[in-house]
């Protein structure tokens, strides 16, 4: 009898994360191929009620403990390891998000199990789990076989549609189980720090002109500002531009920044690393300008050009202005 497929049910600030539903949909596909079941593991403190949203799982394993109130990777991995030693799942799917990152690696280390990160799909081949992982900032895809069970799979966003992992029905079985965790922990959560309100809210814009490393320098941001003004939008950026201090953090798009769904997302000099794509893949129309024809941004864009950004920008600005009259 093959082991079940576990999904670590990520939740944050009282809400089940979208990636949990995506992982449940993926986990169910894998379990179907393997002839086993998908089960959700809900760890936390005072969040038992969230189990009702996890009906896509055949069963929810729910563990409430004070030490699980916020995700500390060591503590979450210890709880999961204790549960996995008891029940021997075939695979554990853990989100590679800013909330959960690190849990999967530690779990695999504790269990002496395989870990495969950056998974965008998982299949069963000859009865064995094979992961499709995206490496090198999205430039290479790999097929990876696990050498030791269980295999801990780090799941990136977008592996399945979240709606495929939602269910109107509550799960058939919810088992409340206990784990043994030390009272004193070497890492202690203190507080959340809310983002400073930016002068504009990038999530509310119809048109976003996004700049990446390819914009070259702080001075060139002005070129993007001019285009944004001509298109009636605002300028935002990917992580390197924010880290350089060329744009404020309130303008960051991606995993650590904002998730946006504008009508137009113009990506200028952005390579399209998975961490960035996570924040903008829902845009209605994506246009990418990047001199590297192999840049992963072209895999998510609708239109693209390999023109030089600095040459292209003023031309487009001029033409957009002319059209506006």
């Amino acid at each position: 009898m093959p082991g079940n497929i576990w999904v670590l049910a990520e939740h944050w600030r009282g809400k089940v994360s979208e990636i949990t539903f995506e992982a449940l949909a993926l986990g169910r596909d894998v379990a179907d191929q393997l002839g086993s079941k998908v089960e959700a593991v809900l760890l936390g403190h005072g969040v038992k009620d969230l189990a009702s949203q996890l009906g896509a799982a055949a069963r929810v394993i729910s563990t409430d403990h004070e030490a699980l109130a916020e995700v500390v990777p060591e503590v979450y991995a210890e709880a999961l390891a204790q549960l996995a030693r008891r029940e021997r799942p075939a695979a554990v799917l853990t989100p590679l998000s800013n909330v959960t990152l690190g849990v999967g690696t530690l779990l695999a280390a504790k269990l002496g199990a395989s870990a495969i990160n950056f998974c965008k799909n998982v299949r069963v081949v000859d009865g064995k789990i094979e992961a499709h992982a995206v490496l090198y900032g999205g430039k290479i895809e790999t097929k990876v076989a696990a050498a030791a069970e269980p295999v801990v799979l780090g799941i990136g966003p977008g592996a399945r549609l979240a709606d495929a992992g939602r269910s109107a029905e509550p799960p058939a079985v919810v088992d409340e189980v206990t784990v043994d965790l030390p009272e004193a922990q070497p890492i202690r959560f203190k507080e959340f720090i809310e983002p400073e309100a930016g002068e504009v809210d990038v999530t509310q814009q119809d048109v976003l002109v996004a700049v990446g490393r390819g914009i070259g320098s702080r001075d060139n941001i002005a070129l993007a500002e001019e285009l944004a003004a001509a298109l009636g939008g605002v300028v935002c950026g990917s992580r390197p531009v924010i880290d350089q201090g060329w744009l404020p953090p309130s303008r960051q798009i991606g995993k650590s920044g904002m998730q946006v769904k504008p009508r137009l997302y113009l990506a200028l000099g952005i390579s399209g690393a998975p961490e960035h794509v996570e924040g903008m893949r829902g845009a209605e129309l994506i246009v990418a300008v990047n001199t590297d024809p192999a840049a992963p941004i072209f895999n998510v864009a609708h239109y693209g050009t390999t023109a030089d950004v600095l040459e292209f920008l003023p031309l487009l600005t001029e033409q957009a202005k002319a059209l506006r009259g």
Binding site: W12, E70, V72, S97, N98, V99, P186, I187, R188, F189, K190, E191, F192, I193, E194, P195, P249, S250, Q252, K255, S256, G257, M258, Q259
Partner: peptide, 14 residues
């Protein structure tokens, strides 16, 4: 540390 959406969290670590 960073969380999603520009939120950050402060921890104390031994």
């Amino acid at each position: 540390k960073e969380y999603p959406g520009g939120v950050r969290g402060r921890f104390e670590i031994d």
